[in-house]
């Protein structure tokens, strides 16, 4: 599993296509069938996939979120997942919005723990937060 995260409009999908050499077969989390995640080689807009699953009554509790992450790691271990990084703003006043942010975070934390690579894309540049066969690289240190 590879996880590519970052803010909106940072070139995350382009970065992933280029870096991992996967040009075709990407599922769009904002409109694909919910079953596609178990077999597709790559998915972008994963946070919108989570949103739609929640709207359809799935992923309601923290336990369901954790179970979903485990199942995904088992059933589609080679998946490349591109997602917006949520949770860096003011806590939303709407309860569903709060649960959506929280759920996306919990699932991605579960996936990141087992993923071979976690990359944050900023301005089209990938910063590796976790790399295959190595300890997490604490490479960037803007304050030091």
């Amino acid at each position: 599993m590879k996880l590519v995260i970052g803010g909106a409009f940072q070139g995350k999908l382009d970065w992933a296509k280029r870096t991992y050499g996967l040009r075709e077969g990407w599922a769009d989390g904002s409109l694909c069938g919910l079953e596609e995640i178990w077999s597709c080689p790559g998915m972008f807009h994963f946070h919108e996939y989570v949103l739609r699953a929640m709207e359809q009554g799935m992923l309601q509790s923290e336990q369901e979120g954790e179970a979903f992450a485990r199942r995904l790691l088992e059933r589609n271990p080679g998946l490349i997942l591109v997602t917006n990084e949520l949770g860096y703003g003011i806590v939303p006043t709407d309860a569903f919005d709060r649960r959506f942010r929280e759920m996306t975070g919990r699932i991605c934390t579960g996936l990141a723990a087992e993923a071979e690579e976690v990359v944050r894309v900023v301005c089209g540049l990938g910063v590796k937060l976790k790399e295959a066969k190595e300890e997490p690289s604490h490479v960037f240190s803007p304050l030091c």
Binding site: A112, L129, P136, H138, S141, L143
Partner: peptide, 9 residues
């Protein structure tokens, strides 16, 4: 970040 620690200082 999603459980991964990044040292800022």
């Amino acid at each position: 970040v999603y459980g991964i620690p990044l040292d800022l200082k």
